[in-house]
Simulated assay, not measured.
Amino acid sequence: MPKFTEAEKAQIHQCLLTKGKELFSKYGLAKTSIDDIVLACGIAKGSFYKFFSSKEELYYVILRHEEKIREQVLGELLREDLSPKELLTSFFKKSLQLVDENPFLQLMFQEGEYERIVRKLPPHLRQETAQEDVEKGMQAVVMLMQRGVLREEDPNVIVGVIKAIMMIRLHKEKIGADIFPDVMNQVIEHVVAGLAVER
């Protein structure tokens, strides 16, 4: 197996992320093979395993990168002169809009897909990402409390509420695709009314 320089490793790693995202978005996780990915990157199949233990791990790493966009959305909204209700409503709606506009993120909302991916991840990666999610969520919630956006409540509960709203997207088809936008508007309106500080 060839040895790569640090520059080559960085280049191959980026290629796997880029081509992996393209292939997953186009064909889905199940129909994309490691052979497809390494062919697109021009590397040997054995070289793939120097970077990732499975295609699910590659998928998950790409997903984590895509999820960082939500943090950027929140940062942008904080720079605008919005009331607490406007800020929270915009955050939820823009987060859901990002999913609807991103074919890669939409894959996660197919029934059972997330569970399949998580099952195939190395245990240490599952634990690290779960811990990181909790910490980042808590930091964001505490920061929004300090800024007078969120009411003073148990941050764990608020993080759970935010996750719950995003997970409703998993049930779009069961709720009814035609009424889903109106349902989400109602859910967001009521949740924001309960979480936002009145000004």
Rank of each mutant, 00 (worst) to 15 (best):
M1L: 13
P2K: 11
A7I: 15
A7S: 13
A10M: 12
Q14A: 15
L16C: 07
G20H: 00
F24K: 01
S25Y: 04
T32M: 02
T32S: 03
I34D: 02
D36I: 00
V38W: 05
L39A: 15
L39R: 14
C41Y: 00
G42H: 04
I43L: 04
K45R: 12
F48T: 02
Y49R: 05
F52K: 03
R64N: 02
K68E: 09
E76P: 05
R79I: 00
P84A: 06
L88N: 03
T89D: 06
L98D: 02
V99E: 01
V99T: 01
L107K: 06
F109K: 04
E111K: 14
R116P: 00
R116W: 00
V118A: 00
L125N: 07
Q127I: 14
Q127L: 12
T129V: 11
Q131G: 13
E132S: 10
D133Q: 14
K136T: 10
G137V: 09
G137Y: 08
A140I: 09
M145R: 05
G148Y: 04
E152Q: 14
E153F: 15
D154L: 11
D154V: 09
K163F: 14
A164L: 13
M166K: 07
M166Y: 05
L170W: 13
G176V: 08
F180I: 05
P181Y: 01
D182S: 15
V191A: 08
E198D: 12
